[in-house]
C-alpha cells in the first residue's frame, strides 16, 4: 500500500514538473522554436566546457562554436527572443543563454538549424493540451451518455450500448487518420489542434460510458435512491446527488488512462504529417525526421524527443491502477 502511494506521488510530481516546464517553454527554452538557421543545421548538442583550448580552467562554464575560438560564457536570466506566456503577456527574458553570435543548443538542432530543446518544450504545449482537451471531451460525453443509459435503461440504454460497442470495435487509429486527412489542411495551427482534439475525444467516449453505466446500474438500486424517490425526487436529483458521486472513482482512473492515450494520438498524427503544421511544433513533428535513415545515421540527438514521450507515458502509468492486474 505504501509502495502504491509512493508510485502515485512520484507520478504526480513528475507530471507537475513536466507541465510547468512546458508551460514555461518560452522562459526555459533559449530560442524561438521556429528560428531557422541553415548554418547551424544538424548540430550535435553543444558541449558545456570549463577548460578552454589553452588548458585554462574557468569557473563560469562556457561554450564554443565550431571554427570560432571565442568563449561564450553561460549566462542566466538573459534577454533573448520575444515570446508570449500562454498567448498572453509577452516577455524577452529567458532562463539561460549565451551572447551573440554564440549559440547554445543543449539538445542539438534539426535539419533547419532550429534548437531542439526549445522545440521540445513548445511542442509539449500542443501535444499535452490536445491530449487533455480530447480526454475532457471523451470523459464528458462518456459520463453523460453513461448516466443516461444506466439510469433510464430501456431504449436509451440499448442505443448507447450498441453505439459504444460500435465505437469500441472501430480501428480507431485508422479512423482518426482518415477523418483528420479529410479536414482542410489550411486551418491555423490552434484551430487544427482544436479540431484534432475534438475528433480524438469524439471517438473515445465509449469505454468511459460503459464503465459509468455499470456504476450507475448498481447505484440506482440502493435503498437511499428508493427513499429519495419516495420523497418525490426528480430523476435529475437522483442522478446528480446519488449516482454521479459514485462515478468519480471510475472517471479518475479513466482520465489517467485516456490522457496519455490521447497525447499519443496527437503525437502519431503529427508524426505522419497530419497534426498541426509549421510553424507550430508538436512532439510528433519533432519525431518525424527519424523516418529518414540518413538522419538517424548522422544525428543521434534527433531521437531525444522519443525519450520525452516515453517519460510522459511512464509518469501517467504510475498514476494508474495497474497493481490490481498483477495480483
Amino acid at each position: 500500500m505504501k509502495q502504491l502511494l509512493l508510485r502515485w506521488r512520484l507520478g504526480i510530481s513528475s507530471l507537475i514538473c513536466l507541465h510547468v516546464a512546458v508551460l514555461a517553454a518560452g522562459f526555459l527554452g533559449p530560442y524561438d522554436p521556429t528560428d531557422q538557421n541553415r548554418a547551424s543545421a544538424l548540430q550535435p548538442p553543444t558541449r558545456i566546457r570549463f577548460i578552454d583550448d589553452q588548458r585554462k580552467f574557468h569557473a563560469r562554464p562556457f561554450v564554443t562554436s565550431p571554427g570560432d575560438a571565442r568563449r561564450y560564457p553561460l549566462r542566466f536570466i538573459v534577454a533573448g527572443s520575444k515570446y508570449r506566456w500562454l498567448g498572453g503577456p509577452s516577455s524577452r527574458i529567458h532562463l539561460f543563454g549565451v551572447d551573440e553570435p554564440g549559440r547554445i543548443f543543449l539538445l542539438g538542432t534539426d535539419e533547419f538549424g532550429r534548437d531542439q530543446l526549445s522545440r521540445m518544450l513548445w511542442g509539449g504545449q500542443v501535444s499535452l493540451a490536445t491530449g487533455w482537451l480530447a480526454a475532457l471531451l471523451a470523459l464528458s460525453l462518456g459520463l453523460s451518455l453513461g448516466l443516461v443509459a444506466g439510469f433510464f435503461g430501456g431504449w436509451r440504454e440499448a442505443l448507447v450500448m450498441r453505439g459504444a460497442e460500435l465505437f469500441l470495435a472501430l480501428p480507431w487509429l485508422y479512423l482518426l487518420l482518415a477523418v483528420r486527412a479529410f479536414l482542410p489542411l489550411s486551418l491555423s495551427p490552434w484551430t487544427t489542434a482544436l479540431a484534432i482534439a475534438l475528433v480524438i475525444g469524439f471517438i473515445g467516449w465509449a469505454r468511459p460510458a460503459r464503465l459509468v453505466r455499470g456504476v450507475v446500474l448498481s447505484a440506482k438500486e440502493r435503498d437511499y435512491v428508493y427513499a429519495s424517490r419516495g420523497f418525490g425526487a426528480s430523476s435529475w436529483h437522483l442522478i446528480a446527488k446519488h449516482c454521479l458521486p459514485e462515478t468519480y472513482g471510475v472517471m479518475a482512473t479513466q482520465a489517467a488512462l485516456l490522457v496519455p492515450q490521447f497525447i499519443l494520438a496527437e503525437v502519431t498524427l503529427s508524426f505522419v504529417g497530419l497534426g498541426v503544421g509549421d510553424p507550430a511544433v508538436s512532439w510528433g513533428s519533432l519525431l518525424a525526421p527519424i523516418r529518414q535513415i540518413a538522419i538517424i545515421g548522422s544525428s543521434w540527438w534527433m531521437i531525444l524527443p522519443a525519450l520525452l514521450v516515453i517519460w510522459t507515458a511512464w509518469c501517467f502509468s504510475l498514476l494508474g491502477d495497474n497493481e490490481s492486474i498483477d495480483g
Partner: peptide, 10 residues
Amino acid sequence: IFQDPGASLN
C-alpha cells in the same frame, strides 16, 4: 421507513 433504516441513508 425501510427495513434497514441505515441503508436508506447515503
